[in-house]
Design a protein around this nucleic acid. Structure first.
Lengths: 174, 174
DNA sequence: ATGGCCATGTAAGATGTTACATGATTTA
DNA sequence: TAAATCATGTAACATCTTACATGGCCAT
C-alpha cells in the first residue's frame, strides 16, 4: 500500500462520500508541491482501492457525467486505522525530507560569489510561502486538526529559515 | 532530470572518481529513509547519466570485477551547477515533506484512547533519531558543509518534536 | 576453502508523470 | 452562446522497488 493510497483513504474518510475529483482538489490545494495529485495517479489509485474492497462507490444522482461517489468500506477504515497506529515506521522514515538541504549540500560546486544568491533566493521564496501558510492558518477557525497541519508546516518552514541563517554564517567564514 | 540523478551528479562530484557502489553507500548511510539507493535505481540512473554525457567512466585498475570509476564530465558539472543555481523552484517545492504530519492529519479516525499512543511512539522514535544525528554532528569535525547537513536535520526533527507537543495539547482538549 | 561482504547488474512488476481526449455544467 | 471549469479517464513513457543472479575479494 503506497502513501498515496493511504492518503486517499484518509481523504475519502474525511470528506465523506465524495468524487475522485474532490480528492484530486485536496491534493492540488495542498501548499506542498510534493503531492501533485495528477489524474493519471489518482484515478488508477482509486480504482485499485475499489478493486481491493477498501473503497465502495455509487453513481452520483442527477449528474449526466459518469461521476461516482466514493466512501470507505469497513475494510478501508481498518486499513486506514492500521496505517495510523503503532508500530510506526522507524525514525528515518518519519523525519522530514528537505529538498532545499539536498541542494545546499552541493553548494561548494558554485563559485563563491554565486553562493549567496542561492541563499537569498531560497529565503525569499520560503518567506513568501510562510506568509501564505500563516494566512491560511489564521483563516481556519473551525477545525483544530487542520490548524495543526498548518502550524506543523509553519514550524517546518521556520526551521528551514533558521537553518539558512546558519548556512549563511558558515559560508561567509569558510 | 530527476532528483535522484541530480544528487548522483552531486555525489560523484563530491567523492571524486568513485564507483557506483560508493554512490550507493552514500545513500544507504543517509539517516533519511527517503533515499533508499537500491541497486535497481542507482545503476540504471548512472547508466542514463553516462549515456547523456554527464558522467564519464574508466575501468578501475587492478580489479577483476567490472568495476568502473565515474567522474563528472564538463557537461555534468554544468548540469549540477545549473540545478543549484537560481531560479530555484517555488516555495511549495522547497518546503519539507513530513511523513509524520500526513498521518497525524487523520488521527481522528482512531478511537480517542489510542491517539495518545501514536504521539508517544512518534516522539520516542524521533528522539532516538535525534540522538544519533547529534552524535554524527559531534563526530564530524572537519567538513563544515557536512556539519550543516547535520544541523539542518537536527532543526527539522526538533521542529517535529515541538509540533508533537502542540498536537498533544490540542488533542487533549478536543 | 568457505563464509561473509564487496560489487555489479538484470527482470518483473507497480507506480507515477505528462499529455491528451472527451463531454457536462456553470458563469459571464 | 462562448469560455471556463468540472469531471473522468487513457496511453505512452520513465522511474522505482523488490528480488534475484553472478562472481570477486578477504579473513579465519
Amino acid at each position: 500500500m503506497t502513501d498515496l493510497e493511504q492518503i486517499i483513504l484518509g481523504v475519502v474518510g474525511e470528506y465523506g462520500p465524495c468524487t475522485a475529483y474532490r480528492v484530486r482538489r485536496v491534493f492540488a490545494e495542498s501548499p506542498s508541491g510534493h503531492w501533485s495529485g495528477s489524474a493519471g495517479a489518482i484515478y488508477p489509485a482509486i480504482s485499485r482501492l475499489e478493486r481491493r474492497g477498501l473503497l465502495r462507490s455509487q453513481k452520483k444522482a442527477g449528474d449526466g457525467r459518469s461521476a461516482r461517489l466514493y466512501r470507505l468500506s469497513p475494510g478501508g477504515g481498518r486499513a486506514l486505522r492500521n496505517w495510523l497506529s503503532p508500530p510506526l515506521p522507524d525514525g528515518g522514515q518519519l523525519m522530514p525530507i528537505d529538498p532545499l538541504r539536498v541542494r545546499i549540500r552541493f553548494i561548494k560546486r558554485l563559485p563563491p560569489e554565486k553562493r549567496r544568491a542561492v541563499i537569498v533566493e531560497a529565503r525569499h521564496k520560503l518567506r513568501d510561502l510562510l506568509r501564505t501558510i500563516v494566512q491560511s492558518h489564521q483563516d481556519e477557525r473551525d477545525d483544530p486538526v487542520r490548524r495543526l497541519m498548518h502550524s506543523g508546516a509553519i514550524l517546518g518552514v521556520k526551521a528551514q529559515l533558521a537553518w539558512l541563517d546558519e548556512v549563511d554564517r558558515v559560508l561567509a567564514i569558510g
